[in-house]
Amino acid sequence: MKKESIKAELVFYDFYGKGAHFRKEKELIHLGDGFAIGYEEGNGLALYKMAGSPDAWEIGDLDEVLFRIDDENEAIAGRSIEEIAQMSVVDFMVMAARRTVSH
């Protein structure tokens, strides 16, 4: 599976469906077929089924979040999206399951 960094727009539409009231460019790792992963502080790491089409991808109101790892999971701290995208499925699952235990 080819993984490449892409730009997508984070878009939130107004309540009346008359256009977008918020747009922000985001950098994601494209996994192919409209799937991407991205990280945002406060929201964590997410696997998206993006809306839109190639060269006009969107996340926000129209995407589908398939999986999310919250920021509280310290296993993702300090890892880049690129590093995570290159992991094997098993390595990713172990990383996602890892938690810091405090006594």
Rank of each mutant, 00 (worst) to 15 (best):
P54T: 06
A46R: 01
V65D: 06
S102G: 04
Y16T: 11
E27Y: 06
I81Y: 03
R98G: 07
E41R: 05
E58S: 07
E72N: 12
S53Q: 15
Y39V: 07
G42Y: 05
V65K: 15
N43S: 12
V65R: 14
A36I: 05
R68S: 00
S80L: 08
K7E: 03
D33N: 15
D14H: 11
E4T: 11
N73I: 15
E41Y: 13
L28F: 04
Y13W: 02
A75N: 02
Y48A: 10
K18S: 11
G38Y: 01
G42D: 01
M87W: 04
I81H: 09
A85D: 05
E58R: 07
A96T: 07
H21F: 11
D91P: 02
D33H: 12
G19I: 02
W57D: 04
S53I: 08
Y48S: 09
I37Q: 00
F35G: 01
K24E: 07
M1K: 05
E72Q: 12
G44A: 08
G17N: 11
D63M: 11
V90F: 05
A20D: 02
E58T: 03
A77K: 14
Q86E: 15
I84N: 12
G44Q: 10
R98N: 12
G44F: 07
V90Q: 04
D55S: 10
W57Y: 14
K24T: 00
M1T: 06
S102T: 07
A97N: 09
E40M: 13
H30P: 00
